[in-house]
């Protein structure tokens, strides 16, 4: 009996978070299947980063439930959360490479800390991963500040995938890169997600990149999802806000919500 019932990897129910008087996430609901690649889009300051940080456990939600692999994570202690985080690989917006460590030490950081590999094996593995993200092994002993922005993104991607995590998170992976480099990073993301069979969550402004790397898209506006659907349908959506966002038109009218 092989009824393919998709396995739920991440499940958010009525998740809310506010900072002071500002409500950033307002009763968010989202279900992410195992192996799915979802993109969360939306204007600046709509709560995308807070949502990501809640999923990674860097921000504690005020209320609601956040289950990963069926386990409620909002109640975990700091120590349990640390262990839990081995499931994640995160590509941060600015790269967030450790600037006191060399390139290979950055990439091998998770291997040495989480998987307790010794230095020699970790370096070998790091250099192997560098070739996967098309980085030359000659830069392995350089420091992050010596590399270009595009190369830093590759190192950050390499660090995120090094421990072969189950969930990959990409925070604005192509922001600040030229179109050619963006494409290369997009391809590398698709490749890494496929190779690892990981569940991927991306946050982006870049519609072209989103269509390429994601199966599904959720549009966040003022703490709500106003649209969710397959990535290839986003341009055909009848939802005004989605149309305006995709076409880059400013949107001042009140918004209809729900799926289109």
């Amino acid at each position: 009996m092989n009824t393919i019932r998709p396995e739920i990897k991440i499940c958010l129910r009525n998740l809310s978070k506010s900072f002071g008087n500002k409500i950033v996430l307002d009763n968010i609901n989202l279900t992410i299947q195992k192996g799915e690649s979802i993109a969360i889009i939306g204007g600046s300051g709509t709560g995308k980063s807070v949502l990501l940080k809640s999923i990674i456990g860097l921000v504690k939600p005020d209320s609601g439930s956040l289950r990963i692999d069926g386990k409620e994570t909002s109640m975990l202690t700091h120590k349990e959360r640390m262990l839990f985080n081995t499931r994640f690989g995160v590509l941060f917006q600015g790269g967030a490479l450790f600037d006191s460590l060399t390139i290979w030490e950055n990439i091998a950081f998770g291997l040495m800390q989480e998987k307790k590999l010794n230095k020699k094996n970790a370096k070998e593995k790091a250099i192997q991963i560098m070739s996967e993200v098309e980085l030359d092994a000659s830069v392995s002993n350089s420091y992050p500040s010596e590399l270009s922005g595009g190369m830093q993104k590759r190192v950050a991607l390499a660090r995120a995938i090094a421990t072969e995590p189950e969930i990959l998170i990409f925070d604005e992976p192509t922001t600040g890169l030229d179109p050619v480099t963006s494409n290369v990073i997009n391809d590398l993301i698709i490749k890494s997600v496929n190779v690892l069979g990981a569940t991927a969550i991306s946050v982006s402004h870049d519609i072209a990149s989103v269509k390429k790397i994601a199966d599904n898209v959720a549009l966040l506006h003022e703490g709500h999802f106003v649209w969710q659907g397959p990535a290839d349908k986003i341009e055909k959506s009848q939802n005004d806000y989605v149309r305006n966002f995709v076409n880059g038109v400013s949107n001042n009218q009140s918004l209809p919500s729900g799926r289109s």
Partner: peptide, 21 residues
């Protein structure tokens, strides 16, 4: 200055996601 720079450039967040306190 060192820890502050690591904080604002998300390096401390990165440490936590790499299971390092």
């Amino acid at each position: 200055a060192e820890i502050g720079t690591m904080r604002v450039s998300e390096q401390i967040d990165a440490l936590e996601t790499l299971s390092t306190n």
